[in-house]
Design a protein around this nucleic acid. Structure first.
Lengths: 185, 185
DNA sequence: GGTTGCATGTAAATGGTTACATGATTGT
DNA sequence: ACAATCATGTAACCATTTACATGCAACC
């Protein structure tokens, strides 16, 4: 499964520009299980157009350059359905964070602490926006399912990090009042 | 973080051949957060050798071709430590399974059912071997942490799949006795 | 007799990232 | 004045996958 199929999937839900597709991938409902930037999306759209799987309408805008709004074509729906008939392979995960955790004994404590703090903050924010999103919008069963999946995973990770961060020598920084009475680092 | 750094990390724990490294990546403690095949490992080892980060000893074997056992060099340890000083970027996840789930309304029910069954079976097996591994071996804190992390994630996913699979029209196949007294499909 | 495991590698193709290139508008 | 958002795209580079190529030993 590649960026082209991803674009077909997104366009099967509603027309969009390359810019909007990228937004859906980086912030929207696909962000839990796919990444793609401009550098892969725009070429993918061009190729899909050339093969007749999507079509493109120029939309003039006031005070802005023209938009290229893409829409899925019948052949595109067919190609998407075809891709969806093939059993999915295993997930691909690559985590530099876990690599760092694995070799935490070789890393500076400060880097570890920072990495944990950042990740925990990120998880909290993500979980918050996802919960909000679940309430506000009405969703297809598929969208609700993947959102719930992502939430379940992020919540499990957050809980794990919060209760196990001390195991790696990346303990929480001393609370503020400890500094006043305690020793400096 | 790339395969070269991964190899350095693995070799920092013990000497190994390319074949053994690949085994550790596909089945061992790294399998939860990294993938790599022969096609990327062997070239990585060659490059690391050329740059003097690892060294290689030929080990003759009876009835087998020679083994190339690699060991990390001081410069290699330094390079690893350096890589570990850089704060980790976000995780990269790519899941065809979630893509299929998202667009489940466009996919054949049979494919969905199969995908769920397979994934659930895979998760159960993985969780089992990981639990066994946790008991049997003594581990570095980092290894124990990442193992626990992987377990937490896999357990959360398994629980989610088991309780929500019906939402997508991929219900469990009818139990065996239902077939005897019930209607055919 | 066939499959799995040990053991090493290369070449081509795929797929994606990063950096560059451009430019107006809106908000702080 | 500066940053962010909207908006599109290309070119060079990077990393990884896939397929190929080889061969013996052990097990079923």
């Amino acid at each position: 499964m590649n960026v082209e199929i991803l674009c077909l999937g997104i366009l099967s839900r509603s027309d969009a520009t390359g810019y909007e597709i990228r937004k859906q991938v980086t912030e929207g409902p696909f962000s839990h299980f796919y990444k793609a930037g401009f550098g892969s999306i725009y070429p993918a759209l061009r190729k899909l157009s050339e093969r007749g799987l999507i079509r493109c309408t120029l939309q003039a805008q006031e005070k802005r350059p023209d938009k290229k709004v893409y829409a899925i074509a019948p052949a595109g729906r067919q190609a998407l359905a075809e891709a969806l008939r093939r059993p999915p392979g295993p997930d691909a995960v690559r985590s530099d964070f876990l690599f760092l955790s694995f070799f935490s004994h070789l890393a500076p404590a400060e880097i570890l602490r920072e990495a944990f703090d950042e990740r925990i903050a990120w998880l909290r924010a993500k979980i918050d926006t996802m919960r909000g999103h679940r309430e506000g919008c009405d969703m297809s069963p598929g969208e609700a399912f993947t959102l719930g999946y992502g939430l379940a995973v992020y919540e499990a990770i957050l809980a794990y990090l919060e209760s196990n961060r001390d195991d790696l020598g990346a303990p929480n920084p001393a609370p503020v009042d400890a500094r006043i009475s305690g020793a400096a680092e």
